[in-house]
């Protein structure tokens, strides 16, 4: 099953770094990048279909519209298809990690910096692995 990968982070460099690693470990061949959550929400709103699957790499600490607000909006929107989120954050607060468990869409939590090894681990997450090796 084909899936779309969305990377959301307010820092261009981080977007570039994550994209490089995604390509390198062959998690996805064409990820889309978004420098804020609103753009990503708009994109999802426009392109979600029942048969589609989305994987989102989400940064938490972003100006104006942060990762938590993104997740709140995501769960309140009538989106179609399957949507899963992996949080990629620079925070090392346990409270952030605990909070992320309140959202059913969140299937992974990564503390930056993201390494090649970590990205490989992401591909091992059950849901994602099922996309990669159907």
């Amino acid at each position: 099953m084909k899936f779309e990968l969305l990377i959301i982070d307010d820092e261009e460099i981080v977007l570039m770094l994550i994209k490089r690693l995604v390509l390198k470990v062959k998690l996805h061949d064409n990820p889309s990048t978004f420098s804020n959550g609103v753009e990503a929400i708009n994109y999802l709103h426009a392109s979600s279909k029942p048969e589609k699957a989305f994987l989102i790499f989400l940064d938490i600490n972003m100006p104006a519209f942060d990762g938590w607000e993104f997740l709140e909006m995501l769960s309140s929107m009538p989106l179609e298809g399957s949507i899963n989120v992996v949080i990629i954050t620079s925070s090392v607060n346990q409270s952030d990690k605990n909070k992320s468990k309140n959202y059913k869409e969140v299937i992974g939590y990564i503390e930056k910096p993201v390494t090649e090894a970590m990205m490989k681990e992401v591909s091992q997450i059950e849901k994602i692995a099922s996309y990669l090796n159907p």
């Binding site: 820092e11 460099i13 981080v14 770094l17 490089r20 600490n61 620079s90 925070s91 090392v92 607060n93 952030d96 503390e111 930056k112 910096p113 993201v114 390494t115 090649e116």
Partner: peptide, 18 residues
Amino acid sequence: QSHVVRAPLARLMGLVNL
């Protein structure tokens, strides 16, 4: 400490890895 300091630090580490 957790959010602002770690952001450039994590980026830095990511770049060094690269």
